[in-house]
Design a protein around this nucleic acid. Structure first.
Length: 499
RNA sequence: GGCCCGUUCGUCUAGGGGUUAGGACAGGAGAUUUUCAUUCUUCAAACAGGGGUUCGAUUCCCCUACGGGCUACCA
């Protein structure tokens, strides 16, 4: 690494929202920057106006914040290298594009979309490059006076990069090593569009240079356009300042082939966004802890080599290294994601879970009156929850009577003896509040006295209190509910069970 | 089609010229819990194929196959 300060940038397009691959790129950028005490910059690629989505920029920032990541410089926080929205840097890009034209590394092209489409259709393997550019409508093929006339008449045009013939361009990717391309295979990419907006190709290079980016990480899908960027760094005379590149492996569909897309989420029933986007629930709404989400994402294509799987964000910063990022694409596995969440719920203290659990319960209409009571319950049940939303099923009955009973488990085996037993047990509870241990002892003694097997009355008791065959130790539940509520629930259930 | 990247259990991966190829998720079996989950024990499960190089290749090289990406005035 050079002595240059580490500065990395995350540059999402706001067009498609923030899907998994995007958040992971952001995360890796962030981890690397923080590990080296560098800057993490958020720059927004909003130059494709036709696809711009209102609110996308704030959404991206919200997602990052939820993950515990905050950019040092962004359209919101600002910094010394702004503006951070590409649409606000428009004039800058034109200036460099014109310079390239002046230096003979780029040219004006007047071809219309229709003309290009026709060429692509009619000419086999058509490519706007050295082989065809001389026969198209551009400032290389056309005589100078004609070009001047077209320009003077404000004819719509783009600026294209003049890719040289018969050269090979290579660079060293941190993850993949030496990668080489033949320039004959790369076409004359549009640098500046007819509307004056830059394409990604021009914008990355100009921004990375002006913002003094030291390391650039992006998805593997960008690898084929790397030669374009390399050429640009060279032609603009900035080669010595070019960032080090790392092309991250792709996140693939859990089934079948291809990279993960937003449709896969709807199709397979799991989120592909960090947070709700476009009406589709994200990991947050699904009941994921941000710690688990970040942990899962970081280990998708990266590991520390020790076998450790659960990492906090702080640990990730400490242990992250580019060398340990794998080359191959990683298939997204929702089951594993859930496992991480369960681990994080178990790991977290009740206090830290409290507000999130309150939100889950509030969504179901349960209002928490006592924090102490809730904390006790969280500690009792958190090991049984995989998603935060599971807290409703696991904790709901502490706050409201069961709405339904698992009658199939009790009714067929119900007898009058059992009715007698519960009436007697109810009577036993009146008076003082019992501890779980004492209550269990009395319950068992009574069962013995009535010549019933403990097991035969335990399950009905659970169903009376909880509604189903789940939850922690019954007597813990009963003790927590208190004698009045327990008696109440026995009475109410008895009516249903005995009929 | 062309170019680029990749390939270890079903999935995520560790390893690396000589290993019983290790771990985790998911799956099976069992123990604990008079529920369910947790926890614990345990089982099954992989180096894409072919050529080299080498005493020896899963590991290094080449080819093939397969997978993926890109091939827009999208990023």
């Amino acid at each position: 690494m050079s002595d240059k300060r580490v500065r990395v940038r995350f540059a999402p397009s706001p067009t498609g929202g923030l899907h998994l691959g995007g958040v992971r790129t952001a995360l890796f950028n962030y981890l690397f920057a923080k590990k080296h005490n560098g800057d993490f910059i958020l720059r927004v690629e909003d130059t494709d106006q036709s696809r711009y989505v209102e609110g996308a920029e704030q959404y991206i920032i919200d997602c990052l914040n939820w993950c515990g990541i905050s950019p040092d410089e962004s359209p919101v926080t600002q910094g010394n290298y702004g503006p951070y929205r590409q649409s606000e840097r428009k004039s800058l890009y034109r200036q460099y594009a014109e310079k390239l034209v002046m230096d003979g590394h780029a040219y004006y092209a007047f071809d219309t979309t229709e003309e290009l489409e026709r060429n692509r259709k009619e000419v086999p393997n058509f490519q706007y490059g050295h082989a065809y550019r001389k026969s198209l409508r551009n400032s290389i093929a056309l005589p100078q006076h004609e070009v001047d006339a077209l320009l003077a008449a404000h004819t719509p045009h783009v600026i294209r990069l003049k890719v040289p013939e018969d050269q090979s361009v290579s660079f060293t990717d941190i993850i993949r090593g030496r990668v080489t391309f033949e320039t004959n295979q790369v076409d004359d990419k549009v640098l500046l569009k007819a509307d004056g907006m830059p394409t990604y190709h021009l914008a990355v290079v100009v921004d990375d240079y002006l913002m003094q980016i030291s390391h650039a990480f992006r998805g593997e899908e960008w690898l084929p356009s790397a030669p374009v960027h390399l050429l640009l760094w060279d032609y603009l005379g900035w080669k010595a300042d070019m960032p080090k590149w790392a092309h991250l492996p792709l996140i693939l569909k859990p089934d079948g082939n291809g990279k993960l897309s937003k449709r896969d989420g709807a199709r397979l029933g799991f989120p592909v966004y960090a947070m709700n986007w476009d009406g589709v629930d994200g990991f947050k709404e699904m009941g994921f802890l941000p710690e688990a989400f970040v942990n899962f994402l970081a280990t998708l294509g990266w590991n520390d080599g020790t076998g450790q799987e659960v990492f906090s964000l702080e640990e990730l910063i400490q242990k992250f290294s580019l060398e340990r990022i794998s080359k191959a694409g990683a298939r997204f596995d929702f089951e594993k994601a859930k496992w991480y969440n369960a681990e994080w719920i178990k790991k977290q203290t009740a206090e830290r879970l409290k507000e999130k659990v309150k939100t889950v319960l509030a969504d179901k209409g349960i209002d928490i009156k006592s924090d102490a009571y809730l904390l006790t319950i969280i500690d009792l049940i958190k090991d049984r929850c995989v998603l935060l939303t599971d807290f409703y099923q696991q904790a709901g009955y502490f706050f409201e009577k069961p709405k339904e009973y698992d009658l199939n488990s009790v009714k067929p085996k119900w007898t009058d003896d059992k009715t007698d037993f519960f009436n007697a047990f109810k009577a036993l509870l009146i008076g003082t509040e019992l501890t779980a241990v004492d209550m269990e002892a009395k319950f068992k003694a009574l069962a013995e006295e009535k010549e019933l097997k403990t097991g035969d009355v335990m399950l009905p008791f659970r169903i009376m209190l909880v509604g189903g065959k789940f939850g922690p130790h019954v007597f813990d539940i009963a003790a927590l509910l208190g004698k009045d509520e327990t008696i109440n629930r026995i009475e109410k259930a008895l009516i249903t069970f005995a009929n």
